[in-house]
């Protein structure tokens, strides 16, 4: 990508209350059911500030549900979720405030279809952060330039390629100056040749110290950018390890089986 300059800083000054490495997202004994289906089984996970945690696992293992429950797009039946020291509110204004601090990037991008790219990026800052339109536009353009789509600012999402849309979605999340960003399979809906332009932006973010929880099938990204890999299967966390350790010597049979299937083609 010639449009983006990897040396640029994507991140503003962090405003979290915990120091680097201190727990920012803490899940304790989380259980979730879809009807009779037990999709999250006693999940315990702590993500420190500045940490990049990659969640991998077979389809239906509950990794997307886990990701979505952290900003309460899915509700959990028992257990606790703490973000930056305070428990996840159950509804109303407090929940909206929390969500403003937790960025989310979806598999299907979910850009606001009736708004221009720039409006997508400025809506949150103006309506939620109460920034002035001018300030939001200036900051929004800066972010769009940094993810390499500044020249598309006045277009509508449907006029952009998938990779461009996903980079806009990342800029939209960054515009809120979030404490952590959740990525729910951000490259799974992309054509192969567009995956890297999105991963490049994510790697850049990771290197600049953004706290990230990334559900993905991109093992290359996990190796390059992750501080820790979490392996899930059937709603349980089976393994947690540094990427190198996990990929070279997984301990559970389930993980060995999974890796042998994805790494041997």
């Amino acid at each position: 990508m010639t449009e983006s300059n990897p040396a640029d800083d994507l991140l503003p000054t962090p405003h979290t209350s915990v120091a680097v490495g201190e727990p920012l997202v803490v899940l304790t004994d989380v259980d979730k059911y879809f009807g009779d289906l037990h999709v999250l089984k006693n999940i315990n996970l702590t993500v420190g500030r500045g940490e990049v945690v990659v969640v991998i696992g077979p389809s239906g293992s509950g990794k997307s549900t886990l990701c979505r429950s952290i900003n309460r797009l899915e509700t959990i039946q028992s257990g606790g979720i703490m973000i930056d020291g305070s428990p996840l509110p159950s509804e109303g204004k407090a929940l909206a405030r929390l969500r403003a601090d937790v960025g989310m990037v979806f598999q299907q991008f979910n850009l606001f279809a009736h708004k221009t790219i720039l409006e997508n990026v400025t809506l949150g800052p103006v309506r939620v952060r109460r920034k002035s339109k001018q300030e939001a536009r200036a900051h929004g353009m800066e972010l769009l330039n940094r993810v390499g789509v500044g020249n598309q600012a006045e277009k509508y999402p449907a006029q952009l390629s998938g990779g461009q849309q996903q980079r806009v979605a990342i800029a939209r999340a960054l515009a809120m100056d979030p404490k952590v960003i959740l990525f729910d399979e951000p490259t799974s809906a992309l054509d192969p040749e567009m995956i890297n332009e999105v991963l490049d932006v994510m790697i850049q973010l990771a290197q600049q110290g953004m706290t990230m929880i990334v559900v993905t099938h991109e093992m290359g990204f996990a190796r390059t950018a992750a501080d820790r890999v979490v392996f899930m299967a059937d709603g349980e966390i089976l393994e947690e390890a540094a990427p190198e350790a996990f990929f070279t010597s997984p301990t559970t049979a389930r993980a060995k089986d999974f890796l042998s299937k994805i790494l041997t083609h």
């Binding site: 109303g92 204004k93 969500r99 979910n110 850009l111 949150g124 309506r127 939620v128 809120m176």
Partner: peptide, 9 residues
């Protein structure tokens, strides 16, 4: 979901 995720009530 995207609207809720950026903190809109």
């Amino acid at each position: 979901e995207a609207a809720r995720a950026i903190g809109l009530s």
